[in-house]
Amino acid sequence: MMNFDYVRPASVADAIAVGSEKGASYLASGTNLLDLMKGGVSRPSRLVDLTRLPGLDRIEHLADGGLRIGALVRNADLAHDAGFARNYPAVAEALLSGASAQLRNAATVGGNLMQRTRCAYFYDAGSACNRRWPGAGCDALNGENRLHAVLGWSEGCIATHPSDFCVPLVALDAIVEIEGKSGRRELPLEALHRLPGETPERETALERGDLIVALRLPAEAQGFAKHARYIKVRERTSYAFAVVSAAASLRIEDGSIREARIALGGVAAKPWRAREAEQVLAGAAPDVAAYREAARAALAGAKPSGDNAFKIELAQRILVRALTLAAAGTPDRIPALPGSPFSSVAGA
């Protein structure tokens, strides 16, 4: 492995100072970054270890009813926080459907937001990849791409964003708090990840040195807690990324849907907020016909980027399922097989 500097700053300000230097990379638990370094995909000359920074590992209830989650809160700790799971059940279910128990115990909230695509061509140093090497080309195009993007892709990149966690978050208007050289700013999570367009190498809206310090969920996101699900189809029951996933949150009043929040995972380079589908459902009766129409609207702009036309059909079906289950009511407990279509199977 290449030699690199390792620094452990004592404050956020110190972290940003060293993290702004060329070749520096922030390190939280390293569940993704260290793999990338071992594979030679990332070769930072300096690792800025954030894990001892004070104050970033707290879950705070804000005066306005919102929730502020420090960037160093572990995925497992957040998912198992009783209050969190009660108020944001789809987020907890998504967290628990991701990776494996060991990884969730290590991985952090901030790190999850910053995880890289799982496109095999991105990881394979011998392949052309515009993310790794702008202008090199995209070997995923015309390659083995049955799991690649169907929404928002470009000829330059057809990779998907792998996070489960981000999918319900983007639906619930989560906000990212960022500290950088020019101070503190906020960004809707939806604006954090970028679609590839002509510049696939620019994966997020962060500038050099920017550090995510917290994630905020607005108070009104709790209004969906009674009707919220995350459903994920994957190639094995645990420790597999989504083929396609969907987060559906509904506010149902007087027998009709007042508001819907919908996002899809595994379909694009970012967690995909489906506002067209939300509009279809606003004011609609909670029935399958409406869900189907919403699903059609969500995928209206989809096109296959390779051997993955099935994902367009599958995404619609998952969305219908997620909406159906959400309308039926959030389960009292997070299912034993979180996110699984089989989560309702007794004894599973």
Binding site: A120, S127, G143, E144, E235, R236, T237, Y239, L337
Partner: peptide
């Protein structure tokens, strides 16, 4: 094992993406 049909490189040469059943399967 998924092999790129052009390069002959194996694209999932790791236990995250070369799937075998986990306990839950």
């Amino acid at each position: 094992a998924v092999m790129d049909h052009r390069s002959g490189r194996i694209l999932n040469a790791n236990l995250a993406e070369y799937h075998v059943p986990v306990n839950a399967d």
